[in-house]
Write a protein that binds this DNA or RNA. Sequence first.
DNA 1: AGAGTTAGTAAATAGTATTAACTAATGGCG
DNA 2: CGCCATTAGTTAATACTATTTACTAACTCT
Lengths: 396, 396
Amino acid sequence: MPNHFTPHAAGDLNYLKSLNRSTILSTVRRYPGLSRADIALRTGLTKATVGSVVNALSDSGWLREGELHARGGGRPGRSLYLDGEHHVMLGAEVGVKGLRVVACNLQGELLASQRLDDSPTTPAQTAAVLARLIEALRGDPAIATRPCLGLGVALPGPVAPQAPILRLAPNLGWVDVDFLALLRAELDWPAGVWLLDNEANAAAFGEFYFIEGAPPESIAYLSAGSGIGCGVVSGEHFPVIPRGHQGLVGEIGHTVLVAEGARCHCGNHGCAETLVSGWMLRESLGVEADASLSASLLARLDEPEVRAALARAGRALGLLMLNLHHTLNPSMLILGGSLMRLGEPLVAPALAYFDAHQNDLLRQTQRVPVKVVEDSTFTAARGAAAQVMARAAIEV
Amino acid sequence: MPNHFTPHAAGDLNYLKSLNRSTILSTVRRYPGLSRADIALRTGLTKATVGSVVNALSDSGWLREGELHARGGGRPGRSLYLDGEHHVMLGAEVGVKGLRVVACNLQGELLASQRLDDSPTTPAQTAAVLARLIEALRGDPAIATRPCLGLGVALPGPVAPQAPILRLAPNLGWVDVDFLALLRAELDWPAGVWLLDNEANAAAFGEFYFIEGAPPESIAYLSAGSGIGCGVVSGEHFPVIPRGHQGLVGEIGHTVLVAEGARCHCGNHGCAETLVSGWMLRESLGVEADASLSASLLARLDEPEVRAALARAGRALGLLMLNLHHTLNPSMLILGGSLMRLGEPLVAPALAYFDAHQNDLLRQTQRVPVKVVEDSTFTAARGAAAQVMARAAIEV
DNA sequence: AGAGTTAGTAAATAGTATTAACTAATGGCG
DNA sequence: CGCCATTAGTTAATACTATTTACTAACTCT
């Protein structure tokens, strides 16, 4: 079933070709420096197939050949790498506290970026401002001359799985917005792939996509900012984000942790966000609405009240991490989002709680690794760019 | 990445053939009575391809041709159906309270079944007893002459995603059991596909696989018995069960609903199973360990204490259902497991709680349908058989 | 320098779905 | 009744895929 996330539904020889091309490209992404022969061994394709596909990908600027490397006797193989000098992908994030735009090469390296720390207003105005940022980025001499694979946009709310439309962004007050259409109206642009996704999903995708070597079975990116979201990704060569019926997979901020607990802005009571989230800390600690939360709180870390509040929130975060393991069961957990800037006072209690409450099932196996991303300013935007690359690799 | 759930990893022409054959088979399963031309239209394959594949499937006993049906002018098409008269699949369930074995035809109809209501003891003894049941079933004249596609076994605990091995069945006291190997030792059998899976996953798969017409995007089967488990399935033609790193996707019985709550047998505190589960009701209401829980309680429904306990458990179940929607977000929810026999005193509070606590995001869209399976005696076994069929359809 | 080994390419081959042309079967209409 | 238009299904030719096989290229070791 083709939709805007998974373009085609199999069947003909084109599909097979595309599948193999994409597999080969992905093998080089995961294992840079492999030779044609190595790729053939790894993918199960024959030398001949790999050779012809690799040569075509070299010609079109996706791969470049590197140095020779001999292994034992015999003719040395020629190392292959993703070509970081040709194509670029653009990624953008509309966050509660500002706009971010990045340009990446095929290796996931940031070539240029733009940011604007004003809170977005209406969808249309935001699209106009974002379009100017994107144009500024495209004007950058480092990327102006390069062919662009497309643009991915990350938004702070669930996106409909059937159409690229934002359903609801509670922290922006947006409902059912066709943001790509608004952007298209502002950007007169030939362009290839246009994608829209949830911020946590995009971030998760990017973190997973550019992992070198054999990736974990799956990762969950827990995004703690104004709200709490979570994106899951799995699939070595073709990373997939489970989305569910309404795109709510990973909306763990609104799982209920306290039956009949404090009222949440979602209309329910006792949600995780009432225990840990930017807006909850803002309300309970009395930070002015337009001030940067993390900056304000970082300045007040010597107040016992603040430290206690962060520790409480941290323990709730640890509990969320535990529940995540029994429902989505990722093999790696990444903590990101603006709250991570608060550092140890929030993170240490979370990790401690997580460690202390492993049950027998989890204790039986190796502890799931947790990675903390302190500065996730461009993580979601870069992830959106990664999604563009993944799509383009299939369609090319 | 091939593993014991997803056999092959794409690449060659065989794969393409297998993919299309399986797609066509699945189209007939979802939409019985279509003609070759209808299938071509639906799948995007050409008439020629569909024709040759359908004829091959007819020859091998997977499809049968039915009546002609004219639509407007022109030559009438010949209806196609899965052939219920040839192949059979076997499915088995090892439950806390007994063994179940079924034989199904390709349409998911139960041709024969066997049950034994003794609690299993050791893995080896259980395998021996189960083997006798299976042999008895194979001896049944209704199925003895038919070709058998294989055997699927459902167990009450998580199964390792990389190998068909049971990790842990707390309610049986089993750890790291290679149950298929034990069975193979008891059953001298040529046989095709052998599969092992978690009980909730198997049940979910079966419920989803045999849905006629366009299926929901995904379903979650919430299995409430001695413990609480949940299986998720999605994918119209190729249903997939997300499993996660350790096969714990859907282990929602051990999500924590009460921080620092009552001690759970998993080693943690405040798990969902401490609020709703067979073993918790058994303990709190003082039912003897070897008596049938539902029977004992059904006889005591006039006691206010029992009704109150069931209502409390029901509300916890409703809360679990809500949290499920914000993490796995299925488009349909099926309630099954032995506790469902308790009926309205448990189910009504659950549904009421679920209805009353929908948040804005869920309220925005159509209410997710909930289906209650009162008698799920053979649901998991039949689901295991369905998994055999799905696998065989790819491999044939 | 030559044998042995591995990398990569080229031409021939087998297998896939598609295309285009055909036959088959029905309803509608004169 | 007979003809035509229409749709279903089959067949043979075609285009494209990956594989097989045979080859050339390039290096190490002796």
